[in-house]
Structure formats: structure tokens, C-alpha cells
Design a protein around this nucleic acid. Structure first.
Lengths: 141, 141
DNA sequence: ATGTAATTGAGACAAATTCTCATTTCGGCT
DNA sequence: AGCCGAAATGAGAATTTGTCTCAATTACAT
């Protein structure tokens, strides 16, 4: 699990080429805030590197995910969305209005250790999301 | 959080009509095992109710999700997949080969209670997934 | 500078999801 | 038992998302 936000460094360290398209995508992910979808990454990435192709975005997002540098999350969309950093924050999602709340500490470390042992699995990160009804929507209907 | 598996009952209780298409979909979800995608639900559902339309499957899955009766999970697919029951099991996903391991107890109850209070949020369920490298893939490459 | 394997772009292709709207159906109410 | 209105549905078009192929380009070790 990489604690620094420097995705480029990690990519290089893992033996991958640091190409212009990848730099653009990484820049978008690091600066562009969280919860970006593939097509948002494409649009924003083209502002930096206009030739950027859809396929490259998908390929790069998959690569970064496999390396554990970003992780997918489940929002309301059809589209897959990503956040940077494995240790990062987690979400509460309102199923009524789609609002997203964030929290930091999740205390899954101990469980992670148990599971790693039990399944002989090298855990690199995790996703924790809570679903329910937010304050506003509780008063509606 | 509904502990019984009786989704139909819960639907009715929430004031929704219990139509033939919905019954078919619910039957598929309850008997058909977990990790079903929309198109699998469609195919299986048509064995019960041949007229079943794709749109209805999507609409119903969304409704059941909003009600907290099923929940989406993140596997490797492009397609969204669902599991029944909020309290259900959770996953370890191998980022190398896509293998899925399941575990039951996750101990998120206390955190859930804290967050519910802090955000004034009515929590109905949650998703917890761990990512990493499975036993087999650790020895490869 | 050069060679080579990795990476890319473009666009066809495929799959997943959403939308529209005319028609049907559930279930409360006589 | 039949009626009514709102809710739900089917069909298929439209849109969005994701995958694939292959010739051309590029990073980077030497």
C-alpha cells in the first residue's frame, strides 16, 4: 500500500514506462479530485494531452488498479469510478438521493490481517461503503 | 436491515405492487445464487416469465437496491453484479486473476453505529471488499 | 544514437444501461 | 365481481461504457 500520492514514481518503480498519456492521466487523478469516472478522466486528460485515447484511459486505470495505486468505488452510476490511494477515505451513500459522505478511519486492519492469514492472501487495500438514507431524505416521504 | 430472505414481502410492505415480472426476478435472486449480473437475471427470469423485459430487470434491481434488499458488488466485470441480503457475505478479490474468496463476519457494526450517529444517517447495509493477490498468483511471475 | 519491447491511437465492435411511450396490470374501492 | 387510476411493463431505439485489433510510435536501457 503506497502512502505517498506520487503515482508516477510508483509506476516507474514497478517497471512501467512513464509515457505522456500516462502522465496526463495520473495528473488528472492526483489533482482532479476523487470519484472520477473513466470518461471524466478521458475528458480532463485531453485538456493536458489532446491525443489521449479512450483505450489508453481504460488500460491505464486497470493498470493502476492492479498495482493498488487507485481503487474503484461503487456510486450510483453505471460508470466505474475511482479514487486515489488505497488507504484513503470511505463512503456513506444515500440510496434515495445519491449523496456521498466521506469518512476516514475504518479500523479494518485487524480483520485484514486475519483474512490474509486465513486465505494466504496478500491484501493491498480495501473498499468499505455504507448504504442507507441520509439526514435530508429521512424527513422526506 | 431485513434479515429474512423474503424480498417479496418487503416489497409489498414498502407499498410496491407485486407484479409477475417482479415475482420472477425476486425468485431468481432468492434461488439463483449470488453474484448475478443483470443479464443473468434477465435470462433466468425469462425461464419463469418469458415476457420479462430488460428494462424491467434494471428497474427492479434498482428498486431493490434502493430498498436495501439487495446490494451491488464490485467484481472484475464490466457488468454490475448483485447479492441478496444486506448483512450477507463479503469478498476478497485477486487483482491478478480475478478469483473471488468469501468471508462472513466483518465486524463493522460498531463503526456503523458511530457513523450513523455522526452523520445522522440511517444505515441499511454495507459493502466490504479486500483487494490483493491470491495464493496462486503470489507464486507466479 | 540505436534497438526493442512496451505502449499508443483510432475506430470498429460489443456489451451494458437508459429512455420513451403506448399498453397493460395491480390492488384499493365500490 | 367489476371499475378506476396510478403504477408498472415491454419493445426497441438510443446512449454510454468498455473491449479489441493492429499498424505506428515511444521510452529507455545499452
Amino acid at each position: 500500500m503506497d502512502t505517498s500520492k506520487n503515482i508516477s514514481e510508483a509506476l516507474k518503480r514497478a517497471g512501467y514506462k512513464l509515457t505522456a498519456p500516462r502522465k496526463a492521466i495520473v495528473q488528472v487523478l492526483e489533482k482532479g479530485g476523487d470519484h472520477l469516472s473513466s470518461s471524466e478522466v478521458l475528458t480532463l486528460g485531453r485538456q493536458i494531452y489532446p491525443l489521449l485515447s479512450r483505450a489508453t484511459v481504460y488500460r491505464t486505470l486497470e493498470l493502476l488498479t492492479t498495482l493498488g495505486l487507485i481503487r474503484p468505488i461503487l456510486l450510483r452510476d453505471a460508470a466505474q469510478r475511482y479514487v486515489t490511494g488505497e488507504g484513503g477515505h470511505h463512503h456513506l451513500l444515500c440510496r434515495e438521493c445519491g449523496a456521498v459522505f466521506e469518512f476516514e478511519r475504518c479500523g479494518a486492519e485487524q480483520l485484514a490481517a486475519e483474512l490474509a492469514e486465513r486465505f494466504d492472501f496478500q491484501i493491498r487495500g480495501h473498499l468499505l461503503e455504507f448504504y442507507g438514507i441520509c439526514r435530508n431524505c429521512q424527513t422526506d416521504d
